[in-house]
Structures are given as C-alpha cells and as structure tokens.
Design a protein around this nucleic acid. Sequence first.
RNA 1: GGAGAAUUGGCAGAGUGGUCGAUUGCGGUAGUCUUGAAAACUAUUGUACCGAGAGGUACCGGGGGUUCGAAUCCCUCAUUCUCCGCCA
Length: 426
Amino acid sequence: MIEIQRIREQQDEVLNGLSKRNIDATKEVEQILILDKEWRGQKTALQNLEAELNSISKQIGQLFSAGKKAEAQEMKAKTLELKTAVQSVKKIEEGLENEIKSLLYTLPNVCTSDVPKGIDESANEIIEEHGTSPSKEKAKTPHWDLAKTYNLIDFEMGVKVTGAGFPFYRGQGARLQRALVSFFLDEASNAGYEEYVSPLMVNENSGKGTGQLPDKEGQMYYIPADDLYMIPTAEVPLTNIYRDVLLPDANFSIKLTGHTPCFRREAGSYGKDVRGLNRLHQFEKVEIVRIETPENAENALQEMIRHVKKLLEALGLQYRVLRLCGGDTGFAAAITYDFEVYSAAQDKWLEVSSVSRFDTFQSNRLRLRFKDENKKSRLCHTLNGSALALPRIMAALLENNQCAEGIKIPECLTRYTGFEMITKKG
RNA sequence: GGAGAAUUGGCAGAGUGGUCGAUUGCGGUAGUCUUGAAAACUAUUGUACCGAGAGGUACCGGGGGUUCGAAUCCCUCAUUCUCCGCCA
C-alpha cells in the first residue's frame, strides 16, 4: 500500500511511477486527496466532540462524589445530544477512512525510475546474458520425456492422487530435488541468511501484509474451515515474522531464507506453457528475504542479484537477467529483476528467479518500522527473491545435461545426490 | 475435543465503574557525586493519529455491547498455562 503522505507530498512522482505500468491513476489519486482532506476535517471535529464529552463526564463524576445528585442528573441530559453527534460524526469519519483505504489497496506500488515503461513482457529489458547451452541436437529430448525414461517424475500418478500440476518425484529425481534444496540453502546460509522452516499456511492478516490479499485472492488455495491460506511463496510467512515490529534503531540488516513448497492455483493458465514442470500447482522453492533501511535497500538488491547469479553459474546453466517493465512488474514490487535459464530442448527461456525491491509497500501494510537517529519511526524496506525455484531448474538440468550415458549431475550437487549420473538403472 | 485459570507499558507486577495512559520494582536514557567505575540520589523513559500551535483523541490480547463515564461489568473470538481425552 502506497503511503498516504507520499501521495500528499509527491503526487507527481507517484503518478509518474504508476504510469510505468501503463496506469493512469490521476483520478484515483485526486479522489484520495479529496477524501483525505475531508477525513482530516471530520477527524478533528470528532476529536473535539469527544474532548467535550470527556470533560462533561469528568464533571459528572465530581458532582456525584460531592453528593450533588440533582446537578449531575442535569449534566447527564446534556451528554445525550453530544453522544449522538459523536456517533454520527464517527460513522462519517470511519466511512471516509475505509473509502480511502480501499482506494489505496487498489493502487499497485510506484515503480522506480529505472523501470522501463511497458505493457507486457515484450518491453522487458535484457540486462545481461551468460554461459552457453548444448546444441539442440545434443539436448534434443524435453524433460517430460526424460522424466519418463529415467523414472524421475510421474505426472500421471500425481493426477490420480491429487490432480494436474501435482507431480510425484521419485528415485533419482526425488534425490536430485533434495540435493538442489540443500545446495541452495547451504549457499544462502553461507551468504549470511538465517535459515527458517516456516508454516505452510497463513492467516488473512499475513496475506494482507505482503500484498497477496486482497489483490491475488484467487491465486491462493484457501481452507474455509480454518480461514487459512496455503502459502504461494515462503516470502509470505518469512516477511510476516516482522509484521507489527518496531526495530529499536537503524543498525540492522535482516536476512532470512527458507525452503517451502509453494501452492498456486494458477487460475487461467493453460496451453503448452503448462507442459511438464513448466507450471505447477505445487513446487519447491528456496526464498531469500531481506529487511533493510531505505538507504541500504538498493545495495541489498544488488547483493541478492549477485547471489542468484552465483547459483546459476555453479549449476552451469546459460542464463539471462531481465529488468521487468512496469506492466510486467508484480503488484507490490517497485522494481523486479527476473532470471531465466535457457532450455535447448524446448528452445525456450524459463523463468527461475524473481528478485524484487518492495520499498515501503509491504512494510506500510505490515507496520514494520525502525527508529532512526532522530528517534523517529520510519518504515523499513523489504526485498525478496527466489534462490531458486526448483522445477524449471530441474527441467533445464535434465534437458541440457543429457548425454549417451544418462544425465550428468553438476559437480556442485554430487556431494548432495551421492551420484554423478542419472541412469536407467537408478 | 472437554474442564479450569489467565492475557495490563521493554520485563516483572498492582489496579473490580470516575481525578488511570495507568501504583511500584527492574531495565533504558540523561544528570549529580567520583580520578574512573560501581553504589546512591535526581530527572526522564509507550505507540499512532488530528492540530500551524496550544493542545487534543485513541489504544490495558482482538472485536462488539452496557454506562454520562470502562483496564475494571456483559457478550464473542484468539492466544497461553494446568488437568483430561485423542494422536504423528
């Protein structure tokens, strides 16, 4: 949620940032400012009425204790009028507040000046590209066929037991998955991130805190009996650890990591993008989350980008880094960098990581603040990134490393898998 | 799941209808004293919002209610602890 003060004080900058997403929010912003002015007037009026009521109540108390019952009764009559006035002004004030809030909730985050303007992925900027992939002749089989040949992933079994998009990994496939998780977690720990095992379901407040609710309601699995949501990413529980937190000083840099399954309904997805591991309802991911001062946020972002690059290089995958245009940037993010690995067999770039700065968009909802040098409360900045999402990494590894003997495991993983080659015998 | 008890400021812990944003202790901060430190003493020490300011309003687990007035009474939800039941 954009800070109301920011809209009051930097209206042009806000509108400009939103225009990167091809959104003209002029009307909404004007409406918010009108309502805000009205709200402040009503708030002041309400508080004045309450002050008067408080003071009369106090006098009544004094009269009673002095034994002057008749006078007290007389005073009581006066409060009646005030009380109804308080009630009606309060109703108006609360109505305005809710109206402002729901308008604010509809506005996505303000993009930074680096974000290119654009409607969809075609306007994303390719920042850099590294590594090489085998030729299409060498890496000719797509991962869904390899998964079958080597008994690594069973999609049909998943359909039987649960439904489409919930595959079983088995044998060396399951083992490879576990190896990737361990590798990613160890790398995150080595980089100073504290490892967490988090709940996989969250309450409504947590969903609101990180911006999944109310915007992406339909994308999460919901359990009505207990009013809980299955997490779409570890970002939600990890960031919400710091909901309603006021850090005592500016001397902090909070780095968290966690591995969780992620549950996404992916309503509206279809076609060949969903083939194999490309799009699932349940998948594994290692997430890194940071909470920083506004001054440190950009540095942290660059550090996270380097971290992800290091992982992809260790895995020996060809990858590129994209700076997302406004239209492709998520609702809550101020700027997002996507990482894609190249799959020769599919002749496609597959998104495997998304690293974002949220500035104060999440912390405003979370009420996550710190005390600055002047003892003033300020909102923290939050950031997060995938490091990494497993399925497409798995797909690219299987496809790019296929050879006559089987599928070669990258060196950085063999200490976790216990084998160097996936073979038909297992 | 059943029964009982509890939830108050950074922590501990008073407060059962009015002068309580809240006694007190510990902790924190500043000062006095001291060569320095400790001790002692003094002062200060929650958050948010409205207001140009003076000042005001709200918050005692969350929400609702009774009352002129609620930390205090009522309803409801959540959480914690104890006992019982069930169970990986």
